[in-house]
């Protein structure tokens, strides 16, 4: 009976997340459009609300083109790895008190592990396409991801130390007195930047830099395989935003006074997640893309030392 309930939960959450992914694309186009004094999609449905559905149908029926000298099995598998890894990470996210598909003790490590598996989609897609633009994108991605994964892992160590657990529900419970962002603001900053680099979003989207690499690692992809990269990327964004709001902003906890204490936890959680997703869009509309060497020196010379200092300070405070 319990396994049936788990299947139902998986089914519901996967559908909600996929719908969210479709509408996050719409949301992004609208937000960036308005930031640049445009309207964004307007034609399909009222205010372009049906645009994601139309795009999805279009992608499904487009021709699936494979370059002549591509490494076929890897070319096929690469986009799937990204989606599977990103959707797999959703399993451990506690949406409200006591509700997650799998409440495991190594929650944070599990998400880090899957996000490191997820980067293979970029690397493999670029390599298997047999195109120099894709290949350059994949080389950049492999170096970028290794560097920023270290910073991301280290920035979460402070949170694990304060909560005394790597279980995501325990971390949220530990923040009932106040969110960790107050004491972990260095970790929060490093995590936010590393998460952008990890999901290959602007301004760290060098693997797909269209001004120099056409479209980077997915230059040769078309149809729904191309769409799978977007599903993976937006699901990854959702997971990173959820992780940020769980680890630093107190997850389902909201302000505990007046009418706010009657608002259900899921509302707070979704508000926080969407604040982060909005931040992703905002930063994309605001900042120009980094140069590659600037990106690497930023990662190794600023974020990793900052995260280490943060661990040291947290340790000292915890001892006192």
């Amino acid at each position: 009976m319990e396994i049936l309930w788990t299947f139902i939960k998986v089914f519901i959450i996967v559908n909600i997340v996929m719908l969210h992914v479709a509408y996050a694309v719409y949301f992004e186009r609208k937000v960036i459009g308005h930031m640049q004094a445009r309207l964004g999609p307007m034609h399909v449905g009222p205010h372009g609300l049906l645009q994601p559905i139309a795009d999805g149908i279009k992608l499904f029926f487009k021709e699936d083109i494979i370059p002549s000298n591509a490494d076929r099995p890897i070319f096929y598998i690469a986009p799937v790895i990204g989606v599977v890894a990103a959707l797999g990470s959703v399993a451990v996210i506690p949406f409200w008190r006591g509700f997650s598909i799998a409440d495991i003790n190594i929650g944070i490590l599990y998400i880090l592990a899957l996000s490191s598996i997820g980067t293979y989609n970029v690397i493999l897609a670029g390599w298997a396409s047999n195109s120099k633009y894709s290949f350059l994108g994949s080389l950049r991605s492999s170096a970028q991801v290794i560097s920023y994964e270290i910073a991301m892992g280290l920035s979460l160590v402070g949170v694990i130390m304060l909560a005394g657990s790597a279980n995501l529900s325990d971390i949220v419970e530990a923040q009932s007195g106040g969110p960790f962002i107050v004491s972990q603001f260095i970790g929060f900053f490093v995590f936010l930047m590393a998460a952008i680099a990890e999901t290959n979003r602007a301004p760290f989207d060098l693997p797909e830099a269209e001004t120099e690499l056409v479209a980077g690692y997915f230059t040769e992809y078309s149809g729904i395989r191309w769409g799978l990269f977007f599903m993976g990327e937006y699901t990854g964004m959702f997971v990173m935003s959820a992780l940020a709001s769980i680890c630093f902003l107190g997850g389902w906890h909201g302000p505990d006074f007046w009418i706010f204490s009657h608002v259900p936890g899921i509302v707070w959680f979704i508000l926080k997640v969407y604040a982060f997703i909005f931040f992703y869009f905002w930063i994309r509309a605001t900042l120009p893309r980094y140069r590659y060497d600037q990106l690497m020196s930023l990662g190794w010379k600023l974020f990793i030392p900052l995260a280490l200092v943060n661990i040291f300070i947290t340790g000292v405070i915890k001892l006192l």
Binding site: I104, N105, I106, L109, Y110, L112, A113, L114, S116, I117, T119, Y120, I123, W127, F135, S138, L139, S142, A143, V145, I146, E149, G153
Partner: peptide, 26 residues
């Protein structure tokens, strides 16, 4: 050994193999 499993993926699959790929590709 859930911790070992996670570390196995993060370190070996996530970092060391990516480095291998990087070197092979270069």
């Amino acid at each position: 050994a859930e911790f070992l499993a996670a570390i196995q993926i993060i370190i070996y699959a996530g970092a060391i193999l990516v480095l291998f790929l990087f070197v092979i590709m270069l």
